[in-house]
Design a protein around this nucleic acid. Structure first.
Length: 466
RNA sequence: GGAGCCAUCGCCAAGUUGGUAAGGCCGUAGAUUGCAAAUCUGCUAUUCACCAGUUCGAGUCUGGUUGGCUCCUCCA
């Protein structure tokens, strides 16, 4: 397995800290609002990684956190009058539902900041004890970046404190401009805060991830986990800060490999809440099938930026349709053995830093070859069985193609419509028998107007929702 | 102001250690079909934003130009 490591900026062989095991921690969402396509892409990218590692025989432990203590959540509490717990549990549930619709496997560990306060507090205390952090007058605790000689090595940002070109105004109480808050003291009466020896307050964002990783993973002398992932925007400052804290608190590095996924863009621009061009998953799922979205969002290499548009999505759907038509052709039945070569070539492609494009090309080739053979010999039972097995393997590996093929082509068709279609199709078959082609073509046009496409095959007439 | 990424056919998109351009969509010609649809087959980039350089040889390496994006602020 070769992975692109964002820190070394090159593909490197994956050599886990414990042989045969892979520990992955991905930065999850802050649960104060609905998930958008960007969350989906990140989730999908690391879901793919986890599936590939599993297929290669690794025992994968995947963690994805929920940041459920945050300024934005507190703002939402103030705005809605609801409790913090009400808000966060609502969005967590919705997030999980949506990810399920996309075929994302649940993480093995889903830590929440609220459930990790003990770990957070003790890590901050450790940093204070080691003189890597300091408390200022109002009770805030800051990490002292000058104490970490390796600060900047994750994001390759030189710690040039002289040159403070940052657009941010710096709080004067910080010793260095790059220092960041580990703990924020509470400001008012109704503020949400927790008691600690250093002050009443709440954790900063960065420390949450570091503490949760320490809490849930055993690690080694050298590293806490194998792979740390997240969106490309987290590289700095979030991951840089995480790495610094963990290094200072534990004496070892946080992760052996760092992976970052590219952005989803709308009209060539990063999708973000501040730009107001967010495309929420809940809206996308109303219009498109989750599996199609998955196929589409995963069809571009995870590190590239992804420009979302409907035309490309429809193209991706056409490609997926072909797979399901083949599945329809070889169903029903039990699969035999996966074609060895197919399996190997697919695994090879995905083992190369998740080269999905090559993998999809391999699948398209398998589809064409199988159709070709089936055209020549429609009753090739062993090929049908092998194809079923191939598709099953592919589904486990990549997470699409698992639906029952006939129902796939009927997504969005209710029972009443279905009955109507069946009646028309039967009527058309009768008309065809008597060679009344005018009548049969009229019926076909009628169905097309309803968004239904017909196919006369050797096994009879089948229909698809377009 | 500082840091980084990217630029391959009409569209989407592979192409690690330099060796002579995958795949999909669209288009087109044919097989098949009552006609379609589906399926299959053939065709569709002497060329990889541009300009120099290194090399026997560069999409792949070096330098520069242009264009796009991102990070430095919460952010997947």
């Amino acid at each position: 397995m070769q992975l692109y490591d964002s820190v070394r900026k090159t593909k490197v062989p994956f050599e886990p800290i414990h042989a045969g095991e892979a520990s992955i921690y991905v930065c999850g969402p802050t649960v104060y609002d609905d998930a958008h396509l960007g969350h989906a892409r990140s989730s999908l990218a690391f879901d793919l990684l986890s599936r590939i590692l599993k297929a290669l025989g690794y025992k994968v432990t995947m963690a994805k956190n929920f940041t459920d203590i945050d300024d934005k959540i507190i703002k939402k509490v103030e705005a809605t009058g609801k409790s913090m717990e009400e808000i966060t549990s609502f969005y967590i549930e919705r997030y999980l539902d949506e990810m399920q619709a996309l075929g994302v496997q649940r993480a093995d560990i889903e830590p929440k900041a609220t459930e990790s306060l003990q770990a957070i507090e003790s890590m901050i205390q450790k940093l204070i004890d080691k003189d890597c952090a300091y408390i200022v007058n109002n009770g805030d605790v800051y990490f002292d970046t000058s104490k970490d000689t390796h600060y900047g090595e994750i994001s390759h940002r030189v710690a040039d404190d002289e040159e403070t070109q940052s657009r941010v105004e710096h709080i004067s109480e910080k010793r260095n401009p790059k220092d960041f808050a580990l703990w924020k003291a509470c400001k008012g009466e109704e503020d949400i805060c927790f008691n600690t020896p250093f002050s009443k307050g709440r954790p900063g964002w960065h420390i949450e991830c570091s503490a949760m990783i320490e809490k849930y993973f055993k690690g080694t002398e050298e590293y806490s986990i194998d792979i740390h992932g997240g969106g490309a925007d987290l590289l700095f400052p979030h991951h840089e800060n995480e790495a610094a804290q963990s290094r200072c608190a534990t004496g070892h590095e946080l992760a052996k490999y760092w992976m970052h996924n590219g952005f989803v863009q709308i009209d060539g621009e990063k999708m973000s809440k501040s730009l107001g061009n967010s495309f929420f998953l809940k809206d996308a799922l109303k219009v498109y099938d989750g599996e199609v979205l998955r196929y589409y969002l995963n069809s571009v290499h995870y590190r590239n930026d992804f420009n979302f548009n409907e035309e490309d999505l429809l193209t991706a759907k056409k490609r997926l349709d072909k797979l399901y038509r083949l599945k329809k052709r070889v169903s029903p039945g039990k699969g035999s053995m996966v074609n060895k070569n197919f399996k190997q070539v697919l695994l090879d492609a995905m083992s190369d830093d998740l080269n999905i494009s090559t993998a999809l090309a391999v699948i398209d080739e398998m589809i064409a070859n199988t159709n070709d053979t089936l055209d020549a010999n429609p009753k090739d039972k062993s090929l049908k069985k092998e194809t079923i097995a191939n598709i099953e393997f592919m589904e486990t590996l990549l997470g699409f193609g698992g639906k029952e093929p006939f129902s796939y082509f009927q997504i969005g068709v209710d029972d009443a419509l279905k009955e109507k279609i069946e009646v028309l199709v039967a009527e058309r078959i009768e008309a065809k028998k008597t060679k009344d082609f005018i009548r049969s073509d009229t019926i076909r046009d009628e169905l097309i107007a309803m968004g239904i496409s017909l196919m006369d095959t050797a096994d009879g007439t089948v229909w698809e929702k377009i």
